[in-house]
Design a protein around this nucleic acid. Structure first.
Length: 453
RNA sequence: GGCGCGUUCGUCUAUCGGCUAGGACACGGCCCUCUCAAGGCUGAAAGACGGGUUCAAUUCCCGUACGCGCUACCA
């Protein structure tokens, strides 16, 4: 039996969580969860000028939103705050002693030396083969420059260790068994392997993920729309859908199923089914997955998330009966819209009858004088219904349409506008049932009065 | 420039030498319908290019093109 899996995500706190970084985190997390291993979060905050506590918070927030919990790592964005795990500190800025000790170790072995005020690593002169679980074995010959001088800097003359060095020391000290990271690190891995050898320990297993590209195939950078995780939260995507979509970028399950909940992804995930080519990010497909997940999600979870997004839009539901709020939001669950669109679909439930805003364009088109008698007849028909339910309302409306010799739509549209203020929205009869007899009556009568020249 | 990685429908992908190249999203048409959707049926749509190897290549090898990455006292 092989040793327990230990993987890590080591972001630099730059003030946002990049979608590519989130995918890297996800794949590491999935690998850990699939193998019952440990997922470590390590903060690479060596750039003290840029890396603020708030920037660390953004990373935490993004990971938590996606549901990527870490077994070891910081519990606070404060580098001196509490953490979980016995391989800390988990902030690079607090690991200086470790780096200095390891540097001394290399010096003692004659593998590090001073030059121009910096400390250099005595790099192997041989080409290195990088064993990669995703790409396969990659032979990395020395570059032209390295032919001249293969040695490279471990510790800068300004007193700061370089990335390659701290990265390896951290992975070594933290007992990382598998390094799953972006393709951009592939060729640098030769340096890392050489360092592990210098320390006399086996290198971890590597797996380099193909990068995520923009929809047009260009490289995705922080400025691009869709590059930042918080953007998806703001737009109201379901995090489970984002996880599902991200998991499908570069990976696919053996049976080809695409709609997957996180536990199913964990079960099926494996490095052997990751492909090597970069993938473009397709918001349409993400949206489609969002739709599927949303309409299948637990209604209570849907309602509480919906309430949160309504609050963001300035609609407070607290003053209403919880059962009413729940019923109101659930009229829209089957629509699977983004949560940021939810206010457009449900705000009328929470408006005062007399204050309901009617879309002016729709009103001009629909609340014409000829509509007034129709609305009045409909109001009368609804008033006569013994039980105010979707089924009885539908029957009453359709019967009236038959009596008047008109299509149901001719009654539906004015009714929808009167009760919701718009011509699009949830299923009419259900929405009416939830609104209730009194509100519907009030709104129809108000609309009838407005339907004049 | 050098080195590395990659290249299947518009997009994400399946295929581990036998393919009438499958699925999903998007797109078109039809049906259904109270709006927007959904749903049902259906249509169009791919192996970058050129050489090999083989009875047989999308699958293996080489080259070219294109894309990306690395090539720092950046991470």
């Amino acid at each position: 039996m092989s040793s327990p899996v230990r993987v890590r995500f080591a972001p630099s706190p730059t003030g946002y969580l990049h979608i590519g970084g989130a995918r890297t985190a996800l794949f590491n997390w999935l690998y850990a969860r699939h193998h019952g291993g440990t997922f470590v979060l390590r903060i690479e905050d060596t750039d003290t000028a840029r890396n603020t506590q708030a920037a660390v918070e953004v990373i935490f927030q993004g990971l938590r939103w996606l549901g990527l919990d870490w077994d070891e790592g910081p519990e606070s964005a404060d580098a001196d705050g509490p953490s979980r795990g016995d391989r800390g500190p988990y902030f690079q800025s607090r690991r200086g002693d470790l780096y200095r000790r390891r540097l001394q170790e290399l010096r003692d072995r004659g593998l590090a030396y001073d030059r121009d005020g910096a400390v250099y690593f005595r790099m192997t002169r041989e080409p290195i083969t990088i064993p990669d679980r995703i790409v396969g074995d990659v032979l990395r010959p020395l570059t032209d420059r390295e032919e001249q001088d293969p040695d490279w800097v471990l510790w800068r003359s300004d007193g700061q260790p370089v990335f390659h060095f701290v990265n390896v020391v951290d992975d070594l000290e933290m007992g990382i068994t598998h390094v799953i990271r972006g393709d951009d690190h592939l060729t640098n891995t030769a340096k890392h392997i050489a360092l592990f050898r210098a320390f006399g320990v086996p290198a971890p297993e590597y797996g380099h993920l193909p990068l995520i590209l923009n929809e047009d195939g260009s490289k995705m950078s922080k400025r691009d729309r869709g590059a930042v995780v918080t953007g998806y939260q703001d737009e109201g995507f379901l995090p489970e859908a984002v996880v599902n979509y991200l998991s499908l970028l570069g990976w696919s399950p053996a049976d080809g199923q695409e709609l997957l909940r996180t536990p199913e992804i964990i079960t099926r995930f494996g490095l052997d089914r990751i492909n090597r080519s970069p993938a473009r990010f397709d918001v349409k497909k993400l949206t489609a997955l969002h739709f599927e997940h949303t309409r299948r999600m637990d209604p209570d979870a849907y309602v509480s998330l919906g309430v949160e997004y309504l609050r963001r839009a300035g609609i407070e539901t607290g003053g209403h009966d919880p059962a009413y709020v729940r019923a109101a939001l659930l009229t829209s669950q089957e629509k699977g819209k983004l949560f940021s669109e939810l206010p457009l679909w449900t705000d009328f439930f929470f408006a005062e009858d007399a204050a309901l805003v009617l879309d002016s364009e729709a009103r001009a088109k629909t609340l014409v004088p000829a509509a007034r008698p129709l609305i009045e007849r409909l109001a009368a028909a609804f008033a006569a219904v013994p039980e105010f339910s979707a089924a009885t309302l539908e029957a009453a409306l359709k019967q009236l349409a038959t009596e008047l010799g008109i299509k149901a739509g001719a009654l539906v549209q004015p009714c929808r506008l009167a009760c919701t203020g718009r011509l699009v929205g949830p299923s009419l009869y259900h929405l009416l049932e939830v609104l209730g007899r009194d509100r519907v009556a009030a709104r129809l009568s108000r609309a009838a009065a407005l339907a004049v020249a």
